[in-house]
Amino acid sequence: MIRRISPNHDRLQSLNGTWRDINGMPSLVSIPGDDRIVANLGIADLSFLTRFGVKGAGAVAWLESQKLEVPDRANTWKPLPDGGIIARLGLTEFLIEDSLHSSFALRLAEACQSVPAKVYPVLRQDAAIVLCGKAIQDLLRQTCSVNFQALSLAEHPVILTLMVGVSVTIIPILPDRYRIWCDGTFGAYLWETLLTIAQELGGGVVGVDRLI
């Protein structure tokens, strides 16, 4: 397996945590004290999850031909069987992220070796973050101008916006669990900025074992 490195790898290295390779990527799975932080405001790096992107006028039909249930409205998401996410970004772009138990991304990448017209694969190398805990809204209020509390989570909204100056995709999974993706080259900056604020709010880094 190819050794993959997360955009946030260096930031996490300096912490006194336990590591494990997940999907070929060294990942921080636990850190002393994170059991206390996770209920208040935890931030964890989920860049190790496998991802696939595709866009184009033919993307919906092609994904359906690959036996995926596609969200029918722009900027909404659906859970995948076995725990992943398929998000419709705008009208004709999709982000598919696996859980630890699924492998849609790999399968779709292989199927993409020969795609029909108007189907364009998008290589995803995101910095992926999860926020958890009851103080999430305090963190969001300091970093993003979208009113998340006015959203109806039952409609599975996907928000494409700016957060601390960086383009991000945000999915509120639950009121105390938010997923955030951004271009990997901004990953270190986003992580560092959110972590500083989270720490001020009494939160901090948590290992992924706390969440998955």
């Binding site: 722009a74 900027n75 705008g90 009208l91 101008s145 979208v146 928000i159 916006t161 700016l162």
Partner: peptide
């Protein structure tokens, strides 16, 4: 038209 009402800085 796709993402809704946002501040002009976006």
């Amino acid at each position: 038209p796709i993402n809704g009402s946002r501040p002009i800085s976006e």
